[in-house]
Design a protein around this nucleic acid. Structure first.
Length: 382
DNA sequence: TCTGGGGTCCTAGGACCC
DNA sequence: TCTGGGGTCCTAGGACCC
């Protein structure tokens, strides 16, 4: 059955929300960015983009390009509020809404025609309502699948509406550069360019067998389908989290082992809090370590049973660090702790540790006598 | 110019088992 | 006496997305 998928992309979202809340900033080069020395730009207003400022660029570089820029720290709670307003508008037209981030969402309009009229009309209505009701500009794309809807809204930026009908798919795609395709990042683009493939039309001429030999079975197939605008992936309203993590880049590199371990404990307790708030247990603990030279190592371990016990998670994280070889002379610029293999806490397979003192005692014993002295078995303490 | 933070998915190699 | 083949699990790294 043919589908109609809509993609909404809020223009320069964080910067636009700042301009909405501070009207005196309107039209100025507003740049929402993390602090120097190691922060990067989250969003630059179109006025700032004229100076060459882009998302992901170091804040220090943005300041050199645009010294008169108005640099603001992000206020995610506020952006979340506005995002909820936009989502509420979208939900009026279909329950099948998939938020991609605060500023982007897919909406499946297939089969909503009897209720709301033709999808083309709905797209125009949404495109008009969002600025009217939120004060913010958005770009809207409508197409037969997510890939086309997304590319359509990209081509309409900023502030436009673009509809790609099934019969227009190939003529719409063909002139686009390959790096515009979803899943073609810098590395893949580079490899394609080396082979003389620059546009989707070029890519479409390559036999699938050759693509498979270059990019592997899955990668090759994916490129072959992308070039033809084929994308069967569904709009998924609620995605269960598969992992959660907290990581920090430090303003100055860390060198002292005690400081590093203390940070790992702190980060572990932060993710553990989120784990518990969201009602999950985790069975895998991961750490991430980035050295001064930007080389990154990860280590992970699978626990005998899922848990949300902060002390267990913290000590696992600390233990993993001993398996990381820090190259001589290298400091540490980033540390991260992640939790994966999440299961809902309602299926808690073992007795809870309700008493923090028990957690303390457990931790003490493990610290003194080693990780084998006392741990978690499938049915509790062992 | 030195490169955030939060995620997802894929690959490849080794261990282990039958 | 140097000899297999498949399946699954686990780990580390990498590409990619917003």
């Amino acid at each position: 059955m043919p589908r109609w998928i809509l993609h909404v992309d809020m223009d320069a979202f964080y910067a636009s929300v700042e301009e909405l809340d501070h009207p005196e900033l309107r039209g100025k080069p507003v740049i929402v960015a993390g602090p120097e020395p190691r922060g990067v730009v989250a969003t630059a207003s179109y006025s700032a983009r004229k100076f060459g400022v882009r998302s992901g660029m170091p804040t220090a570089q943005a300041k050199r390009l645009c010294p008169q820029g108005i640099f603001l720290p992000p206020r995610f709670e506020r952006y979340e509020e506005v995002a909820q307003k936009v989502r509420a508008i979208l939900r009026e037209y279909s329950p099948v809404l998939e938020p991609i981030s605060l500023d982007e969402a897919f909406l499946d309009l297939t089969g909503t025609e009897l209720l709301h009229g033709p999808p083309e009309k709905v797209a125009a209505e949404i495109h008009a309502r969002i600025p009217r009701e939120t004060g913010l500009s958005c770009s809207v794309g409508l197409g037969p699948n997510k890939l086309l809807a997304k590319l359509a809204s990209d081509s309409a930026k900023p502030g436009g509406l673009r509809i790609v009908r099934p019969e227009e798919v190939q003529s719409f795609l063909d002139p686009l550069p390959v790096e515009d395709l979803w899943g073609v990042g810098p590395k893949t683009a580079e490899r394609l360019w080396e082979k003389g493939i620059r546009t989707v039309r070029d890519l479409r001429e390559i036999p699938v067998g050759l693509l498979r030999s270059w990019f592997g079975q899955k990668g090759g197939e994916a490129l072959w389908q992308l070039a033809r605008g084929i994308d069967e992936s569904p709009v998924v309203p609620v995605r269960a989290a598969k992992s959660i993590s907290n990581e920090v880049t430090y303003p100055e590199d860390l060198f002292e082992r005690e400081k590093i371990l203390a940070e790992l404990r702190r980060l572990a307790l932060l993710v553990a809090d989120r784990l518990r708030e969201e009602g999950f247990l985790a069975q895998t603990v991961q750490i991430k370590v980035r050295f001064s030279n930007f080389v990154t190592s990860t280590r992970q371990t699978k626990l005998p049973a899922p848990t949300d016990h902060p002390l267990i998670l913290a000590e696992e994280a600390v233990g993993l660090f001993s398996r990381v070889g820090v190259p001589p002379g290298q400091g540490i610029r980033l540390l991260g702790v992640g939790l994966a293999d999440l299961v809902p806490a309602t299926f808690r397979p073992i007795p809870l540790f309700p008493d923090p003192k028990l957690g303390e005692a457990l931790w003490e014993v493990r610290r003194k006598f080693g990780p084998d002295s006392l741990g978690l078995g499938p049915t509790g303490l062992k």
